[in-house]
Amino acid sequence: MALDQSFVGRTYPPTAPYEVGREKIREFAEAVGDANPAYVDREAAKALGHPDVIAPPTFVFAITFKASGQVVEDPQLGLDYSRVVHGDQKFAYTRPVRAGDRLSVTSTIEAIKSMAGNDILDIRGEVRDESGEHVVTAWTKLVSRAPEEA
């Protein structure tokens, strides 16, 4: 079933702040097997000009994807999440995410398309720190696959 085009442009309220923990960054870096010292060693991060350890580029997805739950679980939108696959993902950074950040995400529906029975939803998540400064924008394309023919 095609999604309601009138949802395009809808912006959801900012999420409660997510506090980025040093050990969470370490856990994530180890899970992707990334030994870059900037993720775990404060002195190494400082040597690169960062005030504290930074997170790998894709770390923030865990935060923006959770925030996009506001959209995908919006009963009025009516997306069938059981059939959703991740189509595209993009990030644009003003600065890296770092330990101690308290990040809030504002999600906006950028586009809704229907192609061959698939619903395609583009969500933009603007990530800001506690002072309201932009950190990163994440664009997520979700594809809800058409049900198989009976």
Partner: peptide, 30 residues
Amino acid sequence: HGMFTMAAAIRVVTDWAGDPAAVVEYGVRF
């Protein structure tokens, strides 16, 4: 996870650049 593949792939860039913060944009299609 597609995001695992995305995280692994960018290591080729961050290891090369040295500072992961050198990456200012990154996008993929799964």
